[in-house]
Amino acid sequence: MIKDRALPVLTVVALIIAIWYAGAALLNLQFEYDQAERIGKQVSLSEALPKTMAQERPVLPAPHQVAVEIWQTTAEKSITSKRSLVYHAWITLSATMLGFVFGTVLGIILAVGIIHSRVLDKSLMPWIITSQTIPILAIAPMIIVVLNSIGITGLVPKATISTYLSFFPVAVGMVKGLGSPDAINMDLMRTFNASRAQVFWKLRWPTAVPYLFTSMKIAIAASLVGAIVGELPTGAVAGLGARLLAGSYYGQTVQIWSALIVAAILAGSLVAIVGLVGAWLNRRMGMREA
């Protein structure tokens, strides 16, 4: 299984890196020509090309530059250092996790309400959908400022934005999941004269578990985005968002890209962990592998 998957994945990774190198060369070349012109020299392509891979503030840093930067800011720094990406990732991760947990719980509660009450379905669903049409970049600063003004700072405002983004997929997924038992299975419960609570715990909930994990995968990635966005408007001093912001202030493209790559790795790992937990639970419930 893993072997079968490794080859295509590695091929794609190799392809992306190749395109990335080509892009870096293309985008950074102009700078080398300008530089040469300024001191009145002609520079050939073969001379300029290697230099495009080693600029200090390239338009697009080369993969190995980013790799070196990541290595230096993770492995070679104490994780308590303000220059350590592990430290910044941890700050963002804690807000992500807090927001994700709240978002998941909120999403489940909303879905349970919507499934059991027509009134809630009619009144809540439009608002839930509307909430996601508002650009997060527009409301993130407001949430942060409002919460700051009432003395709530640090982790919670960022987690609030994560919650805002992550409750949605869970609510939608669970409305679908909790409503998905076959008619025949619902009829069966009816012949047993089962209560609503019994129908919920013995039928709706187990049926919805796969839907829950699918939507949690989306929710945890959205949470991370939320936490990073939450770090932008206040000019936070720590977190991956802060690194992005600081990087762009000082034109440190290598730093920006390092933070981006770390964020992507983090998102991928979180999604993979949720997926693994879901698969494990599925097996534990005795379901056949899909």
Binding site: I184, L188, T191, L203, M287
Partner: peptide
């Protein structure tokens, strides 16, 4: 009454004994 449907309608996440226990739990 006990109702037997055209399809078995067993819950896949329950073992056979747990499926038979379902109405008894209820």
């Amino acid at each position: 009454y006990g109702y037997v449907f055209q399809a078995a309608a067993l819950y896949p996440w329950r073992t056979i004994e747990q499926n038979i226990a379902l109405p008894l739990e209820v």
